[in-house]
Design a protein around this nucleic acid. Structure first.
Length: 545
RNA sequence: GGGCCCGUAGCUCAGCAAGGAUAGAGCACCGGGCUUUUAACCCGGGGGUCGGGGGUUCAAUUCCCCCCGGGCCCGCCA
C-alpha cells in the first residue's frame, strides 16, 4: 500500500476524523515539522491528463488528494489544493470513440488540436473541462494551473534551467531507476517544432545556457508502437517562453513540486517509476525534498454492460452522476485507498444505499459498538460531503425500490404514482417533494431508461391461460374500480382452473416482462384499461392458442 | 524481467492500515406475518477449515515469511 509510511504510534487516540486521510495529513504535518519546512500553507497537488476522456479513476485521484488537503485543514493548518492540467502534452493515441481523422494530430500538444466537439477552445480544453465539471458538481475546490500557462509565464524557468544544466545526471538517474537510456543522450525537454507544430517528434540535443535556448531537430519518434515521422526541421526553442516542455518522467513533476512547494501528491501505481525518478531528481538535482506520496491501485472496468450509447464514453464521472449523487461517487473513491477494485456502473445503487447507511450512523440513528469504528464511519461520511455535511438526514429510500417504482410507473402519471406508492410503503408522510427526493427519482428514471426499460415479453400461453385472459379482458371492459379488477383476476383464474399465483405471474410477464410487479388492480387502472387490454390481446394473437 | 493487488456464506462484497469476545451485510434460499396471494416491509432459519502452511503473541481474518490460485501495472511512452 504505502511503502513510504511507517506505522504510527500505537496509541488508540483517534486522529482527526479517524480516516485514512486524517492519518496521512498527520504524517505530512509531522514530516514538515521535522524538515523544518514552511507550515503556513501546505500544498497538495493533483495532475490531470488532458489527452483523453477523464474516467472514474481520474476523478478518484483528484478526490483523494483533495481529501488529504481537507484533512490538513481539519488539523488547523492552511492548505491549498492545486489541480495541474497536463494540457501541453502531445496526443499519443486517438481515444476510442473519436473520429480516426484526428490521427493527423498525433504528436501535437492537445491545446493545439481543435475540439472535435466544437464547444471548447481545443481538444485539451474539452477533456479538462469534462473533469472540472465533475469536480465542480462534487464541490471540490481547487486552484487550476495549466501547463501551457505555467510554461508560458515562466513559472518553471528556474527548475528547467537546473534540470537542463544537469541533464547528464538526470539521464543517469533515469537509467539507473528504469533502465531507460534515451535521456543519456537526449535532453529531458520537448521543444514544440517551430515548423510542423508537433511536440513529440522533436529531439533536443544541445542546451545553450546563455541564450536560454535548446537546439532540436524534428526527427520523429515512436509513439504507442507507431513511428511518427518528423518534418526534419532544425530549430531552437527558448524555454523561458514556453516553447516546449519538460519531459514528464524526466523531471517535470519534480520541477512542479519545487516551484509550487508541493508537500503531498498521491499517484496511481502506473506512475510508480516516474515518481521514483522524479523523487530523485527533486532531491538530487533540485535540492528539494519531494512531497510525501501515497500510491493507490487502479480501478478496473467490469464493463459488462453497455454504459452509454454515446460513443467514446468509458466509465466517466458523467456516467456515474447520471445515476448517483456526487456524494455516492466520492464514497466510491474515498472509501478505500488500497486494493484494486473492479467497478462498473452497476455498483451505483450499492453506493447510494451505503451512503444512506453512513448517514444513519452520522446522525446517531444507528449505533456502532466500537468507538474507533464509529469515528471512522462518521468521518468517512463527512469526507463524502467534503466536510460540509447536511444538517438533517435526507429521506432514505432503497435505490432498488425507486428503480422498481420508476420502472413500473405508468406513462404520464409517473410522479404521482411514485409518490402514492412511497406513501403506501411508509417512506413518505405527505406530498412534499424535497429536492433530494426529486434527484433520487431522477437517478432512478435514468437507471431504468438505460438498463431496465420495460419490454413486453412474448409469453407462451397454455389453453387455460388464454381462456382466463379472454375472460379477464371482458371483465376489465366492464369494471372501473381497482379493487374489483383485482378480484376479477382471481375469478378469471379460478374459472379456468388456474392457480391465481401462477396467473398473476403470467400477467406480470405479459405486462412488465418480469414475474412480479405492483398490485395489479390499481396498476391496471393507472396504466389505462385500454392499454392493458391491447397488451393482453397482443399476447393472445402471438400465442395463437 | 521488476513491482503491486486480490482470495471471507451459493453469489457480490465489508471487516484487516492502530490484533481482542459466538466473523458481518445485501442478494438468493427455507418458514411465518401483513385476513385476495404481487411488490415493499416485519419476524425467524440454514449456511463459513476467513485460499493453504508456518511464525510472532495471552490472543491472528487482521502483523511477518513461504506456497497455491486469480488479476493488474511497468519494461526506453509520457
Amino acid at each position: 500500500m504505502m511503502s513510504s509510511l511507517e506505522p504510527l504510534d500505537k496509541t488508540k487516540k483517534i486522529i482527526g476524523h479517524g480516516t485514512w486521510y486524517d492519518k496521512v495529513a498527520f504524517r505530512i504535518i509531522e514530516r514538515e515539522r521535522k524538515l523544518g519546512g514552511g507550515l503556513d500553507v501546505i500544498r497538495v497537488e493533483s495532475g490531470v491528463a488532458a489527452s483523453g476522456f477523464p474516467h472514474i479513476g481520474s476523478i478518484s485521484e483528484v478526490a483523494r488528494n483533495y481529501a488529504v488537503s481537507l484533512a490538513i485543514k481539519e488539523q488547523g493548518y492552511k492548505s491549498e489544493f492545486i489541480v495541474f492540467s497536463d494540457n501541453k502534452d502531445g496526443l499519443r493515441k486517438v481515444p476510442e470513440g473519436l473520429p480516426k481523422s484526428l490521427e493527423k494530430y498525433l504528436g501535437y500538444p492537445v491545446t493545439d488540436i481543435p475540439d472535435p466537439y466544437n464547444c471548447h477552445q481545443s481538444y485539451g480544453d474539452h477533456m479538462v473541462h469534462l473533469l472540472l465539471e465533475a469536480l465542480d458538481k462534487c464541490g471540490i475546490e481547487y486552484r487550476l494551473i495549466s501547463a501551457v500557462e505555467a510554461y508560458g509565464k515562466g513559472l518553471l524557468n528556474r527548475e528547467i534551467l537546473d534540470i537542463l544544466k544537469n541533464a547528464g545526471s538526470v539521464g543517469e538517474i533515469i537509467c539507473e531507476e528504469t533502465g531507460q537510456k534515451k535521456y543519456l543522450e537526449a535532453l529531458p525537454y520537448f521543444p514544440v517544432c517551430a515548423s510542423c507544430g508537433r511536440i513529440y517528434t522533436t529531439k533536443a540535443y544541445e542546451f545553450l545556457q546563455k541564450e536560454n535556448k535548446v537546439l532540436y531537430s524534428c526527427e520523429g519518434m515512436e509513439v504507442k508502437g507507431k513511428w511518427l515521422e518528423g518534418c526534419g526541421h532544425k530549430g531552437e526553442a527558448d524555454y523561458t517562453k514556453g516553447e516546449g516542455k519538460l519531459s514528464w518522467k524526466a523531471g517535470e513533476l519534480a520541477a512542479r513540486w519545487r516551484a509550487l512547494e508541493i508537500k503531498f501528491e498521491a499517484y496511481g501505481k502506473d506512475l510508480t517509476d516516474s515518481i521514483k525518478v522524479n523523487d530523485r531528481i527533486s532531491r538530487e538535482i533540485l535540492g528539494y525534498e519531494p512531497p510525501l506520496h501515497a500510491r493507490y491501485e487502479m480501478f478496473l472496468d467490469k464493463s459488462g454492460r453497455k454504459i452509454s450509447k454515446s460513443a467514446g464514453n468509458v466509465f466517466t464521472p458523467q456516467v456515474w452522476l447520471r445515476y448517483g449523487s456526487p456524494q455516492s461517487m466520492l464514497l466510491l473513491t474515498l472509501k478505500r485507498f488500497a486494493g484494486t477494485r473492479s467497478i462498473s456502473v452497476t455498483d451505483v445503487p450499492r453506493y447510494m444505499d451505503e451512503l444512506d447507511e453512513l448517514e444513519d450512523i452520522y446522525f446517531g440513528r444507528v449505533k456502532i459498538g466500537d468507538s474507533i469504528e464509529e469515528a471512522k464511519l462518521k468521518g468517512l461520511y463527512k469526507y463524502c460531503w467534503l466536510m460540509k455535511p447536511p444538517e438533517k438526514p435526507s429521506m432514505h429510500i432503497p435505490y432498488n425500490v425507486l428503480t422498481y417504482l420508476a420502472k413500473v410507473a405508468p406513462e404520464g402519471s409517473e410522479i404521482e404514482f411514485i409518490i402514492k406508492k412511497l406513501k403506501d410503503y411508509g417512506y413518505l408522510k405527505d406530498d412534499v417533494v424535497t429536492e433530494d427526493l426529486k434527484k433520487r427519482v431522477e437517478y432512478a428514471f435514468n437507471w431504468v431508461k438505460d438498463f431496465e426499460e420495460i419490454t413486453e415479453k412474448e409469453v407462451e400461453l397454455r389453453g387455460e391461460e388464454a381462456n382466463a385472459i379472454r375472460h379477464l379482458i371482458q371483465k376489465i371492459h366492464a369494471i372501473d374500480e381497482d379493487e374489483k379488477i383485482q378480484s376479477a383476476i382471481f375469478e378469471a383464474a379460478r374459472e379456468n382452473n388456474l392457480n391465481p399465483k401462477d396467473f398473476f405471474k403470467t400477467l406480470y410477464n405479459i405486462l412488465l416482462g418480469s414475474p412480479s410487479g405492483p398490485r395489479l388492480g390499481p396498476y391496471i387502472i393507472a396504466m389505462g384499461k385500454d392499454n392493458v387490454i391491447r397488451a393482453l390481446e397482443r399476447s393472445l394473437e402471438k400465442s395463437n392458442v
